[in-house]
Design a protein around this nucleic acid. Structure first.
Length: 276
DNA sequence: AGGTACCAACCGAGCGCCCA
DNA sequence: TGGGCGCTCGGTTGGTACCT
């Protein structure tokens, strides 16, 4: 459990409905009891989140979790909750603090057993060995190089047009499990094409034509993109705005980290590569 | 208010490269 | 060597700012 000073400080700042989750003996984070939305929260915000909730964390990542009723209790769906647990590498001594922000939105704070709050994406300690439920085949190694065209190691359709590789693109990611690809800026930057190997490998799904996605940029900045399908290939307009705003030049590299809700693509987190 | 110029975006066509 | 894929190119369209 957290030190009392930390608890007191949190509670001082809390005027909205909130609750804690930490493990009791014999439980693990994927126990069904950990997926329950406390009745007092449901009761205090009637109708606010009958179908889904969205958890947002300090490092501007978020997870959408669908809800299901079981008897009188409201549970987060197992698959969604397990993904949240895996993504954040929750350990037995961790504590979660949930604050109901707005309608279906919760702000989530993750504390380690010493009361230290995680402020950035938790890194997986042993990336190579821990099995992950949606980890793709040919999972990335830290030393992987990725061609600028977006093809990753082991891909059969990869083209090597710009053979200056970005070393270790995973180090740019907020969440190492997220799909990602490397994009080289060209003089035609009206749309950002999605990498097909990444789409297939992660079985990514897209919203309807003209639905919006977010370009999540450094410093918490955000630009809106529109989903298009050119030649059957999904891509996002609004990319030119990003290139202009951040003064990207032809030949510059960016690591595009795909944000998902389930398998549905909701945004592209853009990491500017500076390897020179 | 209407005309013009400029710019950004749309999207089909086609090029270049890799693999079987 | 042909087919498929990833990507760029370029013509067209639509929106906006500026000028008269």
């Amino acid at each position: 459990m957290l030190p009392k000073s930390v608890v007191d400080k949190l509670q001082e700042n809390v005027s909205k409905p909130c609750f804690w989750k930490s493990l009791s003996p014999g439980q693990n984070w994927k126990s069904k009891s950990m997926r329950i939305i406390p009745e007092k929260i449901v009761g205090s915000t009637p109708g606010a989140f009958e179908h889904r909730v969205v958890f947002s964390v300090r490092w501007e990542n978020s997870w959408q979790l669908w809800l299901e009723r079981d008897k009188d209790d409201l549970f987060m769906q197992e698959e969604d909750w397990n993904e949240f647990v895996d993504d954040n590498h929750l350990g037995p001594n961790d504590t979660l603090f949930f604050r109901h922000d707005d309608t279906m939105d919760f702000e989530v704070q993750i504390f380690k057993n010493n009361g230290y709050e995680i402020m950035d994406v938790p890194l997986e300690v042993e990336l190579e060995t821990e099995p992950l439920h949606h980890k793709p085949q040919n999972s990335h190694k830290e030393t992987v190089t990725v061609s600028a065209s977006g093809s990753e190691n082991g891909g059969t359709n990869g083209r090597v047009r710009h053979r200056r590789d970005v070393m270790n693109p995973m180090r740019y990611l907020l969440n190492p499990e997220n799909p990602h690809f490397v994009k080289v800026v060209t003089k035609r930057n009206d749309v950002l094409y999605m990498s097909r190997p990444v789409i297939h490998r992660y079985r990514l799904k897209f919203g309807p034509l003209h639905s919006t996605i977010d370009f999540l940029l450094p410093g918490g900045q955000k630009e809106e993109g529109i989903l298009r399908f050119y030649n059957g290939q999904p891509c996002f307009s609004g990319w030119s705005v990003v290139c202009r705003k951040y003064k990207l030049n032809v030949g510059d590299y960016v690591v595009c980290e795909i944000e998902r809700s389930g398998s549905l693509v909701t945004g592209v987190r853009v990491h500017f590569v500076n390897e020179d």
